[in-house]
């Protein structure tokens, strides 16, 4: 109970809650022309990517298993809904469950890889895993319609509803991350990341914890993938591409990997990318990519710990300055 109180009372939580409340009010200002439709769509995408990055953060940020194949889980979740609704004509929830089951299988494979490989080799294996699924998706025509992709039909639901759902999903992932970080699970994850041998010698079955991390993270990613598929109503083999994987990890890294605030702050990246694309339009698409890339490089050069570390660094800097002042006074 103490933990919850401390989490709610912290200053950043209040700021984020205020922003979320403002965003939640957006649909009220919608007019006949639908001028709020685009901001609502953007908010929905930002929330989804924050949620994706937060679930990636559990595996890579906490446990140190640097997966660049998270599109695998995302794609499985998306395709499960597509195939389930379009081909198998089953209930939506059954379809989502199917995605989770397949994701757990793939996560288990990645977990077994994690027992044997670490560092770059693990990263490469994770990329290969996503690529395998991409190949299956783009060649198994009977199941996935290959490059055409699958479109689904759903009752028309206002965008605002999806935005509220995305917000709820995002908040859920943040809460899950918070409780994992504060529990035995999170401490052990970080211990495995920092010094696996020592973690073992302190009684942690590190292989099992690495497996837990990938299972939790994979399941969450799959669920979010299913949600996004249901929202955009179409899926094609691009969902397995490294573009998705890298977008997920950019959001987490630019904000601050391994911290709860990282992905939340990193959500700004999605916004920036979309806005840039809007400003420059399709004729200058490459220019927007260049500008976004430049901004990313700049942030990583100035603050490798991510944007969310800035207040902490500033606080440390101020304390340093104050203690220096005190020292000078004493000298005088």
């Amino acid at each position: 109970m103490n933990l919850i109180k401390r989490g709610i009372k912290s200053k950043p939580t209040i700021i984020i809650t205020a922003i979320l409340m403002l965003v939640a009010l957006m649909p009220l200002f919608d007019d006949a022309k639908g001028s709020m439709q685009l901001p609502i769509h953007l908010a929905c995408m930002v929330f989804c990517y924050i949620a994706l990055a937060q679930s990636w953060n559990i595996l890579a940020g906490l446990c140190g298993q640097f997966s660049v194949g998270h599109a695998a889980f995302y794609g499985l979740g998306s395709y499960a809904v597509g195939i389930g609704l379009h081909r198998m004509k089953i209930n939506l929830f059954l379809a989502i469950l199917m995605g989770v089951v397949f994701s757990i299988i793939v996560a288990a494979i990645l977990g077994v890889i994690g027992w044997k490989l670490s560092g770059f080799y693990y990263t490469m294996a994770s990329i290969a895993l996503a690529e395998c699924l991409a190949v299956i998706a783009s060649t198994w025509y009977e199941l996935t319609s290959a490059q055409q992709g699958i479109a689904i039909y759903r009752p028309s639901i206002p965008k605002a509803v999806f935005m509220y759902m995305a917000m709820a999903i995002m908040i859920a992932t943040i809460i899950i991350f918070y409780f994992i970080r504060k529990s035995k699970l999170g401490t052990t994850f970080v211990a495995v990341r920092e010094n696996e041998n020592l973690a073992q010698s302190l009684g942690a079955n590190t292989g099992r914890y690495k497996m837990f991390a990938v299972l939790i993270s994979g399941t969450m990613t799959s669920l979010i993938g299913s949600f996004m598929m249901y929202y955009v109503q179409a899926v094609d083999p691009m969902v397995f591409s490294s573009a998705i994987s890298s977008k997920i990890l950019i959001v987490a890294i630019i904000g601050g990997i391994g911290t709860i605030w990282g992905p939340i702050v990193g959500g700004l990246y999605v916004l920036l990318e979309e806005v840039m694309r809007g400003v420059f339009g399709s004729s200058f698409a490459s220019l927007s990519v260049m500008i976004v890339g430049g901004i990313l490089t700049f942030i990583m050069m100035v603050r490798p710990e991510g944007i969310s570390a800035i207040p902490k660094v500033y606080k440390e800097w101020r304390e340093q300055k104050q203690s220096n002042k005190l020292l000078k006074c004493e000298e005088k």
């Binding site: 035995k184 401490t187 970080v190 211990a191 020592l198 973690a199 302190l202 009684g203």
Partner: peptide, 26 residues
Amino acid sequence: ACTFQHALLFPKLTLGESVRMGAYCR
């Protein structure tokens, strides 16, 4: 239990949490 030749411990954890990691053994 053991201590290692080079005391690296968990560089990014706090002292309290590092010790808690040991306590989680039981």
